[in-house]
Simulated assay, not measured.
Amino acid sequence: MGGIWNAIGDYWWLIFVVGGSVGGVTRGIGAWNERRAQRRLERYRIKQEASVARAEAESRGRVDSAAVQAELAAAAAEHERTDETWFAYETDLATLLDYPMLVDLREPLTETFHRDRSRAELLRPAPDSTDQGAVRSYRDAVHAYSTSLAVAEQEAKRRRRNDFSPVEQERLARAQRLLALAMNDAASGEERRQAYARARSELDGLIALPTAGAAALERRVQAAIEAG
């Protein structure tokens, strides 16, 4: 026993070396734990920020989609109103002859209106579209169509038949009366057929009737002939 204590006495300085090493290890472990805790907190913070950013982006996406849909609905409504204005002329051929400029494609205003009409229809997106670029292109095309029709309509009403010679104006007037007869349900089928054929003859070389309106009238005349 005395030998052990003598040995310890000879190496007493190791206590400070070992103690210092243990203390260093303890401090190192503490620092590592602290860094690990900080990294965990940093990962949690990043994850929370990402979640918040994702939620904000989704919210903006919902708001943007709703705004695009509202813009599309407004453009579609304007498109429908403009179509109705034109269809009122297109399907009432007798009235259209009061304003023949609307179907005279030699007129720049008329050509522009018909081109804008085709473009607006071509660019019409699907009803559920949320493509902002496509919707805005459609909106602009519809606005151009509406504007060009209004300008052409105003000019056609101002000019009426004045661009035609007196002889041509007489032909337009006769064609107008004949078309009114062709659309008269009280007339016989044969009367309506003859009136329509004579009206087309009067208009030949002057103006071209709108395809849709002419086709609809031809169907009415044919139905009247078959019924008679």
Rank of each mutant, 00 (worst) to 15 (best):
M1I: 15
M1D: 14
G2R: 11
W5S: 13
W5H: 11
I8H: 08
Y11C: 11
W12D: 10
I15E: 11
V17F: 14
V17C: 11
V17Y: 08
V18I: 15
V18S: 15
G20T: 04
G20A: 05
S21I: 08
G24R: 11
T26D: 12
R27H: 12
G30Q: 11
G30S: 13
A31P: 07
E34N: 15
E34F: 10
R35E: 14
R35M: 05
R35Q: 12
R36S: 13
Q38L: 11
R40I: 07
R40K: 13
L41C: 06
L41F: 03
R43D: 13
R43M: 10
R43E: 11
Y44L: 13
R45E: 13
R45K: 15
I46N: 06
Q48R: 13
A53P: 05
R54C: 09
R54Q: 13
A55E: 09
A55Y: 10
A55N: 05
E58P: 05
S59N: 12
S59H: 08
R60S: 12
R62V: 14
R62A: 13
D64L: 06
A66I: 12
A66M: 07
Q69T: 15
Q69Y: 05
L72T: 03
A73P: 04
A75I: 02
A75K: 03
A76S: 12
A76D: 03
A76T: 11
E78N: 10
R81G: 10
R81E: 13
D83G: 15
T85S: 15
T85R: 11
W86I: 12
W86Q: 06
W86F: 08
F87G: 07
A88Q: 11
Y89P: 00
E90A: 14
T91K: 09
T91L: 11
T91F: 15
L93F: 01
L96P: 04
D98V: 08
L102D: 01
L102H: 01
V103C: 02
V103W: 04
D104V: 00
P108F: 08
P108V: 07
P108L: 06
F113S: 12
D116R: 02
E121V: 09
E121T: 09
L123T: 03
P125K: 05
D131I: 05
D131F: 08
D131V: 04
D131P: 03
D131W: 04
Y138S: 01
Y138V: 05
D140W: 08
A141M: 07
A141R: 02
V142N: 01
Y145R: 12
T147S: 14
L149W: 08
V151C: 01
Q154S: 15
K157V: 03
R158S: 09
R161G: 01
R161A: 00
D163Q: 03
D163W: 00
F164H: 01
F164M: 01
S165T: 14
P166W: 00
Q169H: 00
R171T: 05
A173G: 09
A173W: 06
R174C: 08
R174I: 07
R177S: 07
L178A: 02
L178Q: 02
L181W: 01
N184V: 06
D185H: 08
E190F: 04
E190A: 10
R192G: 02
Q194S: 15
A195N: 05
A195K: 00
R198S: 09
R200H: 03
R200M: 10
L203E: 02
G205W: 00
I207G: 02
I207D: 03
A212Q: 11
G213T: 01
G213E: 02
A214L: 07
E218I: 05
R219I: 05
A223L: 06
A224E: 06
I225Q: 10
